[in-house]
């Protein structure tokens, strides 16, 4: 990734930039709070934080319309917040409480919102790729112009079922954007230790699927690429691949000491490429927003996140009778 450039004057409106700033900041502060609650023992099991990657989902959500669907991996909190799910319900699911999106029965990796067309939250690496193609199949079958976003990581990209899904998605012309969030580490294995492929989007060529690599730390670049991909899918031309070059600041999960990369590497990205700082600079150095205006947003986000933590602590544990519900529809 290139060194930090002086922010160019963007053609994007102040309102749009503020929207991205707010949405990315919400994810970051939410995830920091989740990490804190995990440390207090209020969140159990596995908890995978999205910090660093916020621009990917915020930029792509800006390309969606009503009825579009999304599905992702276990690193899913950011996707839920970005598609409009309530911070309270997400946080309460993390603490395993009745007020969570899955009534406390799914947890960090297994959350859904039919209302927001969010189909999880999947703990089996790459399972969401054919599942996402299937969601797109349902729209293709019904003949509407909705699109599905199927997010997966560079690790999942080496699973065979990804390529089975690519093949059928292109064969049948399914409206699915395959979004590879290439954060460069599959748990502790760097991409160069897992594949000789130079790019991951390039593998779509074998199936006839167009794609491109995108600076996933730049929300405006993400949005621009997303619009192109969505137009391709909505117009009935089949799937599209976006390889988002991004970076996670935290470990793979809460218990990962991240010894497979240097602190300098992480610090360099934080200093030079941080997606939130990027938009902050565009707003302040472009003269669009004052520090006070942004501080007010920071405060507002902090209140939303703190309220979600309170809700997640106070929401009761699920009633024991819930053990036996929802097994069958």
């Amino acid at each position: 990734m290139a060194a930090k450039k002086a922010p160019e004057k963007s053609n994007v409106s102040k309102d749009e930039l503020l929207k991205y700033y707010r949405e990315m900041l919400l994810i970051r502060r939410f995830e920091e709070k989740a990490g804190q609650l995990y440390g207090m023992g209020l969140i159990g099991g596995f908890c995978h934080l999205y910090i660093g990657q916020e621009a990917v989902v915020v930029g792509l959500e800006a390309c969606t319309k009503d009825g579009d669907k999304r599905i992702t991996s276990y690193r899913d909190h950011g996707h839920m917040l970005a598609c409009g799910m309530a911070a309270n319900g997400v946080m309460a699911e993390l603490t395993g409480r009745a007020g969570g999106y899955s009534k406390g029965k799914g947890g960090s990796m297994h959350m859904f919102s039919k209302e927001r067309h969010f189909y999880g939250g999947h703990g089996i690496v790459a399972a969401q790729v054919p599942l996402g193609a299937g969601l797109a199949f349902s729209d293709w079958y019904k003949g509407n112009d909705n699109v599905t976003f199927a997010y997966f990581g560079d690790g999942a990209a080496n699973q065979g079922q990804v390529y089975e899904a690519y093949n059928m998605a292109e064969l049948w012309g399914l409206p699915v954007v395959f979004v590879i969030e290439n954060n460069q580490y599959a748990m502790g294995t760097s991409m160069k230790r897992a594949t000789k492929s130079v790019t991951l989007y390039g593998r779509g060529t074998a199936y006839g699927i167009p794609g491109e690599q995108v600076d996933g730390m730049d929300v405006l670049a993400v949005k621009a690429a997303g619009e192109k991909a969505v137009e391709h899918c909505r117009s009935g031309q089949g799937p599209y691949i976006l390889e988002m070059m991004t970076y996670r600041y935290r470990g793979h999960s809460m218990s990962d000491p991240a010894k497979y990369r240097t602190r300098e590497e992480v610090e360099k990205i934080k200093q030079e490429k941080d997606c939130i700082e990027h938009v902050r600079d565009l707003l302040t150095q472009g003269g669009l927003s004052s520090e006070d205006e942004l501080k007010a947003i920071d405060k507002e986000i902090k209140e939303i996140v703190n309220a979600s933590a309170e809700f997640a602590k106070e929401s009761p544990e699920p009633d024991l009778s819930e053990l036996w519900t929802d097994i069958y529809a």
């Binding site: 599905i71 054919p130 599942l131 193609a133 797109a136 349902s138 019904k142 079922q161 093949n167």
Partner: peptide, 26 residues
Amino acid sequence: PKRVIDTPITEIGFTGIAVGAAWGGL
């Protein structure tokens, strides 16, 4: 052919697609 669909030999792929299609209302 839209309702009787021949698949490639790709069990995990078409099973995943079918499950996604069921979630999508089919």
